[in-house]
Design a protein around this nucleic acid. Structure first.
Length: 164
DNA sequence: GCCAACGTTGGC
DNA sequence: GCCAACGTTGGC
């Protein structure tokens, strides 16, 4: 309805035990379905704001060295996350019905692995002080990244040349 | 393993 | 609709 796009860049958390940047790169087409989002705010980002081609910072969380581990892109629109209907899945949601799926996913295509840009280094950059991931108590698994933040991070990763 | 912070649930 | 209790997240 509006032509405004609030964000073109995102940070997406993944536990490397579940899906690391290496796992994503090794997947067919380097593309993985982003299963397991069970938070309404994150779901709404996928549903309402994220578009094919948007840039993604691939973040490793809940691991010995949390931080940005790679660059990816949004590779599809949303569709229902099948794991919500699988009783054996840790992501099972018995309250969600196939006629009205509650949870969505989209495909994420890994573009490249980077050096690990860890939290201490992120915090050391005043330009990145506004990063949602650095805010106290932030738990959102998908957060928007401002254009200046994206540019700064790609710079730190030495990837500014070949990726917008 | 700890614990602060947050989201969700459910009784009222 | 309030809010306490509970479960989860995630860095340390």
């Amino acid at each position: 309805m509006t032509t405004n796009r609030p964000a073109r860049h995102w940070l997406m958390k993944s536990e490397p035990d579940e899906c690391s940047i290496d796992d994503a790169l090794a997947a067919p087409g380097a593309t993985v379905p982003w299963t397991g989002v069970r938070n309404y705010q994150a779901r709404n980002f996928m549903r309402d704001a994220m578009q094919v081609g948007d840039g993604v910072l691939f973040y490793h969380s809940s691991c010995p060295e949390p931080g940005i581990a790679g660059i990816a892109r949004i590779a599809s629109g949303t569709r229902p996350d099948p794991t919500q209907f699988e009783a054996a899945s840790p992501y099972f949601d018995g309250a969600s019905k196939p006629e009205t799926p509650r949870w969505l996913l989209l495909d994420v295509q890994a573009l490249r692995k980077t050096r690990l840009l860890g939290l201490p280094e992120l915090r050391a950059n005043p330009e990145l002080a506004g990063l949602r991931i650095l805010q106290r108590g932030n738990r959102l698994s998908i957060t928007p990244v401002e254009p200046a933040e994206w540019a700064r991070i790609l710079n730190l990763l030495g990837a500014a040349g070949d990726l917008r």
